[in-house]
């Protein structure tokens, strides 16, 4: 309640970003309604079938989109902090690297790289420190959770090499 100013600043121009949000909501409403229209009819005693609730949600989303347009035009959205793009990109890169490579290079290396890239986003530029540190940490986590507690974590060359080292010689 306290954040809404009683007297709006008449000089504030329409909020472009808020209009984008409104557009996103309207598009979302369209997608939900389109998807619901494709659902085939199954005999239902409930009278409300699998498409009823999606339609209701689509209507509400559209309504919220219109409401957002009104608030955007009136400049009712609160002030935003300026954002820096680079750190966000570093973190997104880290997550992308992990999800694309984890099945091939194993949990430890992929997660170690993620670790280093996130640290980079927060200003740690020394990759020759952060990558090895991240990998060692990830190996420790892998050993505890994958070997010790039988969680399924993808393994790669590093984990296999480690397990070979630890394997008792007699079974060879």
């Amino acid at each position: 309640m306290t954040t809404e100013p009683l007297h709006r600043n008449p000089e504030r121009r329409p909020d472009r970003a808020a209009l984008v949000i409104a557009a996103v909501l309207l598009v979302l409403a369209g997608i939900v309604a389109w998807d619901a229209s494709r659902i085939g009819g199954v005999v239902q005693y409930a009278r409300i079938g699998p498409q009823t609730v999606p339609y209701a949600i689509a209507i509400c989303l559209a309504g919220l989109g219109l409401w957002t347009i009104v608030e955007a035009l009136r400049g009712d959205f609160p002030e935003r902090e300026p954002q820096e793009a680079m750190p966000v990109l570093w973190i997104v890169a880290g997550l992308l690297v992990q999800l694309l490579t984890i099945r091939f290079i194993g949990f430890s290396i992929a997660t170690g790289v993620l670790f280093a890239l996130v640290a980079r986003a927060f200003g740690e530029r020394r990759f020759w420190i952060s990558i090895p540190f991240g990998i060692v940490l990830s190996i420790a986590v892998w050993v505890i959770f994958a070997r010790g507690l039988s969680l399924t974590l993808p393994h790669g060359p590093l984990e296999d090499a480690l397990m070979n080292l630890l394997r008792p010689r007699t079974t060879a």
Partner: peptide, 11 residues
Amino acid sequence: GAIALPFAAMA
């Protein structure tokens, strides 16, 4: 020990 047990047989 509980954590190490699964290490026992690795073939």
